[in-house]
Design a binder for these strands. Sequence first.
DNA 1: GGCTGCGGGATTGCATTCAATCATGCCTTA
DNA 2: TAAGGCATGATTGAATGCAATCCCGCAGCC
Lengths: 245, 245
Amino acid sequence: MASGAPDPVSLERADDVTTENGALLPHGEAGVRIAAALRDEILGGDYLPGERIRQQELAGRHGASRVPVREALRILESEGLVTLVTNAGSWVSRLSAQECTEMYQMREGLEPLLLRYSVPTLSDDVVDQLQQLADEMQRSADVEQFLRLDRKFHLACYSAASTIMLGDTVLRLWNRTQHYRRAYSLMFRAERDDSVHYDHQLLVAALRNRDGEDAERVLASHIRRTRLALGRHPEIFDASPRQEG
Amino acid sequence: MASGAPDPVSLERADDVTTENGALLPHGEAGVRIAAALRDEILGGDYLPGERIRQQELAGRHGASRVPVREALRILESEGLVTLVTNAGSWVSRLSAQECTEMYQMREGLEPLLLRYSVPTLSDDVVDQLQQLADEMQRSADVEQFLRLDRKFHLACYSAASTIMLGDTVLRLWNRTQHYRRAYSLMFRAERDDSVHYDHQLLVAALRNRDGEDAERVLASHIRRTRLALGRHPEIFDASPRQEG
DNA sequence: GGCTGCGGGATTGCATTCAATCATGCCTTA
DNA sequence: TAAGGCATGATTGAATGCAATCCCGCAGCC
């Protein structure tokens, strides 16, 4: 990794450096720390799209001043998670159905490429782990667990890729669409569609054979199918808490 | 446009708001202004990859304090143009040959998609303008002029697309690779390769016919050819001014 | 009744100031 | 002579305080 933004390493929620006691924190990373925390909150659904973010509230909660908070907001703005308006404030970004479709189309173009970077150096251990994740996902009933496993599964597919911008961009795409995946899953958890799991199983099989070409096709098809499913339910993108604070 | 970062509108160098007299500047955009200025300087070749950026120097030059400068550096870091190291400083990002190849592969996947968004609403005026740019480029001898026209040409192809993240991402890819396009053009300006111009002419023709499918293929082929050409000359990526300040 | 202007409170934007960290050169010492 | 440690200067990181801007409710007017 060299210069990209949301540090492609931390694929999981980064709950490690949460020294709430306020001591022993290194000097010089407050902005990044706050950004990471707020990012996790947004992805976890604690903040909802359209919700206002107040600098002072964040500063107080993290025991910092508003200066690093503003840095954090700039970071998240560049990732598309937060929308800043000069002299007015900042809100959690929301997506329209069209915009979400756009991101899934980007994923269709980029993730097969990222997979191509990953496959050659993908270890058997990771493939075994992917198999476990796919199986576990198939058994899981809880929506939040499914979302967590699905994210972990796909990002693990790319874990062997060492890229500087491609991985970042894909991660950003996942992050910006995370809320709407959750909304979709919550709304249609009854009518379970097994094709998702079939895709995952096929993908693991292709990866086990190190058949990158087939893996890329399965993956593109998987993303495309999800995009079409989302596109059939634009009502997910209508309701949101409050447009403005 | 909604929330993306490097404001896809300002495709050109933004030399408009440079009120050096220090008066009449609106309150609340110093960080963005400084970022825009520094971005232009990096893209223009005034700052070179590997060169150190000092906060105070920037602040003094723009008649501002270091706070908005730090904001600007965060913005440019997220665009990949600047690399920040905690407690150490900031440098203009540099690319290896591999990394540059990666970005061109991303362009191959994304720009045809962006073109697909643009073609349906592309006006005849823009097509005429593209024709002029392609012709002018073919005649131009100066490297800097060619670079400027080439950039303007390609970005104009996408000017009718209204996307929120796709356009931004493509612009970032252009920006991060800009320096190496210049280095390549400067090094091989003698042995002119007309295939670039043929591509441009074919692209304009396809756009005039509103043949999006053909335009996408020509574009992908054009980018791919450029990628391979760059890949054949890794020496471009070796020398740079100074690794550290 | 609905629109317009305005004033108080809240919130953001930036300059100043102080603290922490790092780099550099000199001095000491084996 | 060369290697290591320490002090000084330079640079970055963050807190505080003040100025500019905006949101919002209310009075006044058409």
